[in-house]
Computed example of a mutant assay.
Amino acid sequence: MSMSNTIRAGAAIAPAILLAACAGETVWPPSPWPTGSVTAAAETVPVGTANADAADDPAIWRNPADPAKSVLLGTDKKAGLYSYRLDGTVIDFVPAGLLNNVDLVSLAGGTVLVAASDRTDAATPAIAFFTLASDGQLTQGPRLEVGSGGSGEAYGFCMAEADAAGQLARAYVVTKQGPVIEAVIGGTAQAPTILSTRRFAIPSQSEGCVVDGRTDMLYVGEETVGIHRFDLSQASPAGELVSRADGTALVPDVEGLAIAPVGSDGGYLIASSQGDNAYAAFALPTMAYAGRVRIVDGGGIDGTVETDGIEFAAGSFGPGFPDGIFVAQDGDNGPDADGNATQNFKLVRGDALLAALRGE
Rank of each mutant, 00 (worst) to 15 (best):
A12E: 15
Q177I: 12
S196Y: 01
T193K: 10
G226A: 08
L132S: 06
L241M: 13
A245S: 11
F321W: 03
A328W: 03
A122E: 14
G303L: 03
T304Q: 11
T248Q: 12
V211E: 12
L138M: 13
T215Q: 05
P179G: 06
G226H: 13
V296F: 07
V27T: 07
L99M: 14
G298A: 03
R143I: 14
L138W: 12
G226Q: 10
I259Q: 03
R143M: 08
P64D: 09
L269T: 04
S117G: 14
M3T: 11
V27W: 04
A123Q: 15
L98S: 13
I310R: 00
D216V: 02
L354C: 11
A249D: 05
I295T: 07
M287K: 07
L168Q: 03
K77A: 04
G334E: 04
D56H: 09
T197L: 01
G109H: 03
T39K: 14
V173Q: 01
T188F: 09
A201F: 10
G275F: 03
S196F: 04
Q167T: 11
G256T: 11
A355D: 15
V47Y: 07
A189M: 10
S37R: 15
I60Q: 13
A191C: 08
V180Y: 02
T111I: 08
P67L: 06
K346N: 10
A20V: 14
S272E: 03
A245K: 04
T193D: 10
N100T: 11
L353S: 13
A16K: 14
A9C: 11
G186Y: 06
R8I: 00
